Simulated scan of single mutants.
Amino acid sequence: MRHASSLRSHHGKRQVLDRLLDGYRNKQIALELGIFERTVKMHRAAILVKLEARTTAEAIRIGLASSLVIGDRGGSNG
């Protein structure tokens, strides 16, 4: 069973997942959120475990299907 709803209570992981959807790389996410890149990697790994996903792409798909992230948010990966 996927634990998609459990990410709703984890603000940091949610922020990372949102930015992954926008196509950001770990370093870009770290700079934008003001955290270490290692922290982003830890959040990313935790997201995969929580969603029982093997890849980031699969985690994003699960997140979209679970209404965890909003597609076409108009974000920039700038």
Rank of each mutant, 00 (worst) to 15 (best):
R44M: 10
D18A: 11
A53I: 11
E58C: 01
K27F: 03
L51Y: 08
R25A: 04
L48C: 06
L33I: 05
L7H: 12
R54D: 15
G74S: 12
L7K: 05
K50P: 02
L17E: 10
G23N: 07
G63N: 00
G23R: 01
N26I: 00
K41Y: 01
I70T: 15
Q15Y: 04
A57H: 14
L33K: 04
I60K: 00
L7S: 09
Q28M: 03
D18N: 14
I29Q: 05
V40A: 04
Q15R: 12
E52M: 11
E32Y: 12
R73T: 11
R25W: 03
R14V: 01
E52A: 13
H43S: 06
M1T: 11
R25K: 09
L17S: 07
L20Y: 03
S66H: 11
I35M: 08
R73S: 10
L64S: 08
Q15I: 03
I47R: 03
S66Q: 15
R44Y: 09
L48V: 02
R8E: 14
R2L: 12
K50W: 10
I35G: 05
E32T: 15
K27Y: 05
H43T: 01
V40I: 03
I62V: 11
D72W: 08
R14G: 03
D72E: 13
M1H: 13
R2G: 08
L51C: 06
A45H: 02
T55F: 02
A30D: 06
A53W: 14
I60Y: 06
R38C: 02
H43G: 06
H11Y: 07
H43E: 12
G71D: 15
D22V: 09
H10L: 02
L68Y: 02
R2W: 05
R44F: 09
H11L: 13
Q28Y: 02
K13G: 02
A45P: 00
L31N: 12
L33M: 05
R38I: 02
L64R: 04
S67A: 12
T56M: 10
R54Q: 15
L51S: 08
G78Q: 04
V16N: 02
R2S: 12
E37A: 09
V49C: 01
S76G: 01
N77W: 08
R73K: 11
G78T: 01
A65P: 02
L51M: 08
G75Q: 10
G63D: 05
S76D: 07
M42L: 04
A65V: 09
R8L: 04
S6W: 10
R14P: 00
